[in-house]
């Protein structure tokens, strides 16, 4: 298989970029030329080869660099990973799910050997070879959730299910679109979604909660969300807003192609077997505008979506300041021709 892992940064000199193959597999989120909220949930089943849905947990060319960036964030701010005391069992559930799926999907990169509760885990890209006792945190260098998510791309929220609600009681959050685990920890589903405009009135959250509470083991689901990010920074957190907020004022017609990124989150939902908790992985993919316009269809469609986005949504997503500049830049790539159906590049 052979993934060609890139050495790159998501801060300072921002050397992140996508290879042409990685651009082709980008999870472009717009099925039509306009955008409005929808629950857009579909079964999370292994999908087509050479897409990010080929395996339940995608590992791509940014894996090693993303894990290095996560370690930097955690070193500065350990509260990016938290687990309330009753969530330890869900941490072990998470570790089991990620290890078994990674070893199954990428046998040349990851190996898991189980002998009762004596487990042996090898992660070749990160140079990890550990023996530990499943269920005994003292045999790992970190708690089970932190241990395995330091080796897994994307953020992870772990939701306890009780009292007819879901509770954000554990997680690791270092690649987020401006939300904070430390702020949300212990909140229920309606509390942590309170800042989202329009959707409450549309009944989106009531329906989504009902669906999630009934989610069953062995039948994971996924949806996507999107926003935009200036510079290829993964850690666009409220905690570090002073470091990245002002970047939004630096967009000019000359630097749109390299500086402005479409940011897509593939959000997944898994029922965890021992704890009956829900695991909510949020995987972030970045695409530069220069990379996006290598697909004429994506360029036309994204121009139309961004141009016609309702103001409330632009405000919530933090795009207001640079939206006109980006729309103007994208308009050069939109000749008005119709776009084909589907999400693929062409």
């Amino acid at each position: 298989m052979g993934i060609n892992f890139r050495q790159e940064t998501f801060r300072d000199d921002y050397s992140f970029k996508n290879s042409p193959e990685q651009i082709r597999r980008f999870p472009f989120p717009f099925p039509e030329d306009k955008y409005m909220y929808s629950v857009n949930i579909e079964p999370h089943v292994p999908g087509l080869k050479d897409t990010v849905f080929e395996h339940l947990f995608d590992v791509d060319e940014h894996y090693i660099s993303e894990m290095q960036d996560r370690a930097l964030v955690l070193a500065e701010d350990p509260l990016r990973c938290q687990s309330l005391p009753h969530m330890e069992l869900a941490g072990w559930d998470t570790l089991e799910l990620l290890m078994t799926e990674k070893a199954k999907s990428y046998p040349d990169l990851f190996t898991l050997t189980r002998d009762g509760d004596k487990w042996h885990w090898i992660n070749r890209p990160l140079g990890i070879d550990d023996h530990f006792t499943f269920g005994d945190s003292s045999t790992l260098p970190y708690g089970p959730l932190e241990y395995i998510t330091r080796q897994s791309q994307g953020d992870f929220a772990v939701l306890d299910q009780r009292d007819n609600n879901l509770w954000m009681d554990a997680g690791i959050v270092t690649t987020q679109a401006d939300w904070s685990l430390d702020f949300d920890i212990g909140m229920n589903f309606f509390e942590w979604h309170a800042p989202v405009p329009l959707a409450h009135q549309m009944g989106v959250f009531t329906r989504a909660l009902k669906f999630l509470m009934a989610l069953q083991q062995g039948q994971p689901s996924r949806r996507h969300n999107w926003t935009m990010t200036i510079n290829s920074r993964l850690d666009t957190s409220p905690e570090n807003f002073h470091k990245w907020g002002t970047d939004r004022a630096t967009v000019t017609p000359e630097n749109v192609g390299q500086k402005v990124h479409l940011r897509v989150e593939v959000q997944m939902f898994f029922r965890l077997p021992r704890s009956n908790a829900l695991l909510f992985p949020i995987r972030c993919y970045l695409l530069k505008m220069d990379e996006l316009v290598t697909s004429p269809k994506w360029a036309r469609r994204f121009h139309r979506v961004l141009r016609d986005l309702p103001n409330e949504l632009a405000e919530y997503k933090g795009l207001v300041r640079y939206r006109p500049t980006v729309v103007e830049w994208l308009s050069k790539y939109d000749d008005g021709a119709p776009t084909s159906a589907g999400l693929g590049p062409d």
């Binding site: 559930d93 089991e96 083991q217 062995g218 077997p273 021992r274 704890s275 009956n276």
Partner: peptide, 8 residues
């Protein structure tokens, strides 16, 4: 068989 939790 799939792992389960007590009460399932």
């Amino acid at each position: 068989l799939p792992t389960f939790s007590g009460g399932a």
